[in-house]
Design a protein around this nucleic acid. Structure first.
Lengths: 241, 241
DNA sequence: TAGTGGTCTAGACCACACA
DNA sequence: GTGTGGTCTAGACCACTAC
């Protein structure tokens, strides 16, 4: 009988690493593990929680990735003095972003040029002297209303195919993700004053603050593309957790 | 002899989940696994790579978290049509951000009021009618130059202690992280036109585009604080990977 | 209902970093 | 040196979900 009871209890006691995570976070935010304190070792904790070390390790690793803990071999696991606040944003294709709201998506090419890269761009994309680039200006509409203005530069040397594309039907973003991979990405968010293009296409007043995201990508140390996305008035980039 | 050789080979063949990840990503970006294609099951892949299913699972899970794969039970693992571009920003305390550059940090309280929450704030923070709040305006300097303007609201009902603090020496941010935990966070980035406060303290011209980050936090369904951080001219929030 | 990913376990070896 | 986290393995059961 005792055996049976123990087995049943054991079955009911199954603990997942998520439950362990929750308990750990609670001990950090409310309980005994204040900022800077040193946690017991994995083995000891695993015993206390009645889980395997593998499970305890995963729980600790994920709590650590949330920014609460600092883990070092030999030194042990320590609660961060100030938890690292992280903001994670998912940036889908404009098309997906618009269609998810139920609105109809429309794409329009505003202008297309193949030119010598200006100095600031050469520096920004680490291009060689006299490099040729494709410069595109595109609009993305949601239900007929301008949603986003895309100002894109493509390195023609790294991507000769781009000079042959006319981008009148398919946007450069969708063409690029299907055509070239990337090994290095740099993303920035910034506030910019509305310039003539934004005034003309997005309906801003001149000088209005515009939320822009900029993305530069490289593939095997060669610049691929640099794009600035100017968002509609009042746009916010938001995330929750 | 063959046995010895085999053992030595086995030892050298140790494959880590990171190597597996790299190979998977390469197959996605260059190799045979184009967008939308269905990957073999974990068991089969584990065999092919000569690793345990546990290791293969971890590799696939992490590649999936990078935004390349979409995993569903029974349906299998599929390459995303367009990889979800993610931007992850770490937002340390201003003090840490400034001191990391080698500059000297200084904090200054500009104003402090305890008032009834205005309507827009009640709605924004989900506060009750006639809720009292502490309103703070603070400045953060780097080497004597204004770096960031902090406009903060604290829910006095949830945090009566805040009405007693004078915040003249320690900034509310540092006080809060040491005092209250949070269970729900909402972070936004936005572009705003410089208002009188920003003009007076950050040196912007009126109407200048200002990059602002806004953070609202709750603890057990009670609003704790809402803060807007106005950044200095030309500030960019940047991340690489 | 059957196949796929999600997760747990027990045991083991190793690499790093501190003393 | 030595203790801590980092990782791998083999085997197992389970939960979701497409068919």
């Amino acid at each position: 009988m005792p055996d049976t009871v123990r087995i049943e209890t054991a079955k009911a006691e199954t603990t997942t690493f998520r439950e362990v995570m929750a308990e750990i976070i609670q001990r950090i935010t409310e309980g005994p593990w204040g900022p800077g304190s040193l946690l017991p070792g994995e083995v000891e904790l695993a015993e206390e929680f009645g889980v395997s070390r593998t499970t305890m390790n995963r729980a600790l690793r994920e709590v650590s990735e949330l920014g609460f803990l600092d883990r070092k071999r030999k030194a042990g696991t320590r609660v961060r003095m100030a938890p690292i606040r992280q903001a994670r944003f998912e940036m889908p294709l404009v098309r997906a972003e618009i269609e998810k709201t139920g609105a109809a998506y429309r794409y329009q090419l505003v202008s297309r040029d193949v030119i010598l890269a200006p100095d600031w761009l050469r520096e920004r994309m680490r291009l060689k002297a006299r490099a040729r680039v494709v410069h595109l200006l595109c609009l993305h509409f949601a239900d007929g209303v301008a949603f986003q203005l895309e100002d894109r530069w493509i390195n023609a040397q790294a991507l000769p195919l781009a000079t042959e594309q006319d981008f009148s039907a398919v946007g450069p973003n969708e063409w690029l993700v299907a055509t070239v991979p990337f090994s290095e990405v740099e993303i920035s968010f910034l506030a910019q004053a509305a310039d003539a293009q934004m005034v003309a296409h997005l309906g801003h007043a001149p000088g209005d603050p515009v939320f822009c995201s900029e993305r530069a990508t490289w593939w095997q140390n060669a610049a691929v593309t640099l794009v600035t996305l100017a968002h509609r008035r009042g746009y916010r980039m938001t995330t929750r957790y």
